[in-house]
Design a binder for these strands. Structure first.
Lengths: 183, 183
DNA sequence: TATAACATGTAACTAGTTACATGATTGG
DNA sequence: CCAATCATGTAACTAGTTACATGTTATA
């Protein structure tokens, strides 16, 4: 539910659709992402539902911007969602695993190359979580003391990303060994 | 792309929409799943595209069944897809992490309860991969020798599930400790 | 001088979910 | 007698993607 992500970000402070996209890209993108176009249409729906309100701001030497503010009703909707326990398992779509599942007759060399590429990508992503992501959280926590508790939560989600990449690398290495032995 | 999953299963042998659903539920569900209704509509589209063909089979004392067979064109489409390397990172939607990200002001007890529930769910899922899933793969490999290589691939995807649950449990335990210390 | 960043939006489409509709047989 | 299993499908909806359309300013 993208709407709750937008409400969550707007609760910190008012933002434009453009800024919401940037914020998501540098914070939740590894567990929640959206295209710019979907953000704009969702903001429109949220405004119709009265959970956000917007003001068009005129700017010199830059395009006008529409700034969205969360309403009381929006805060309430967000809080209700946060208070509802998550019970259904995450329903994942994992293209690489699906392909692999049906790949018994593919060339061994091709599969090894695929896994090698994945290893590089996951290594890079892991390093990203360990440096850039970690730094952003530290900086915000240091510069805005009121967000100290929030930063602990952000760190928990960052840590998930790090552990996930670590796990992926372990699995890729195991799978490469299996291919070399069994094929 | 559900269509490739269906083509992949139909390449083993002809099946009905109902059987495809059952097959997915007991094999790929942890990385690819679909509702019965989506399977039926996708099969219809695949037939219009000439990648599968169907025959209505009359049955005594049971409803008629429509059996789908993969065509040459379908086999070709599947092979082309399998031969295309996966380059874009999986785009994940993870509701629990999104909620947690915005949960700095939620009750500590509520958050601990949420994580406790998640721990139970992931423990169960891990055990499922370690017993039922493992057994199914072993049985098929033992009873159909031609599927021995396929079984190695299935095992790799099963192992991913097992490692993923293991990683989740580790993260949940870490996060519970963090909450107890910092909140 | 070109391209990245700023800035917003709509239209058409694909993918997936929920709800509805029907109905026989088998097992507890 | 009731629930589960077998069996197929449509309609309405929500979510998300791709492509199109427009235009300025700062920076390399």
């Amino acid at each position: 539910m993208l709407k709750y992500a937008l409400l969550g970000f707007l609760k910190y402070n008012a933002k434009t659709g453009y800024e919401l996209k940037q914020t998501m890209d540098t914070s939740t993108s590894h567990f929640w992402h959206a295209k710019q176009s979907q953000i704009y249409t969702t903001l429109k729906k949220l405004e119709e539902a009265g959970q956000v309100s917007s003001l068009l701001e005129h700017q010199e030497s830059r395009p006008d911007r529409r700034v969205y503010t969360i309403t009381e009703s929006g805060i309430k909707a967000l809080q209700e969602w946060l208070a509802k326990p998550v019970t259904d398992p995450e329903t994942v779509k994992h293209t690489l695993l699906l392909k692999l599942f049906f790949s018994a007759n593919q060339e061994k060399q091709f599969l090894l190359a695929q896994l090698g590429l994945q290893r590089t990508l996951h290594e890079q992503q892991m390093e990203h979580y360990q440096s850039e992501t970690k730094d952003i959280i530290k900086e915000v926590a240091a510069s805005v003391p009121a967000l100290k508790q929030d930063a602990h939560m952000w760190e928990a989600t960052r840590r998930f990303g790090e552990l996930y990449e670590e796990m992926n690398l372990k699995w890729i290495n195991e799978t490469i060994s299996m291919l070399q032995k069994k094929f």
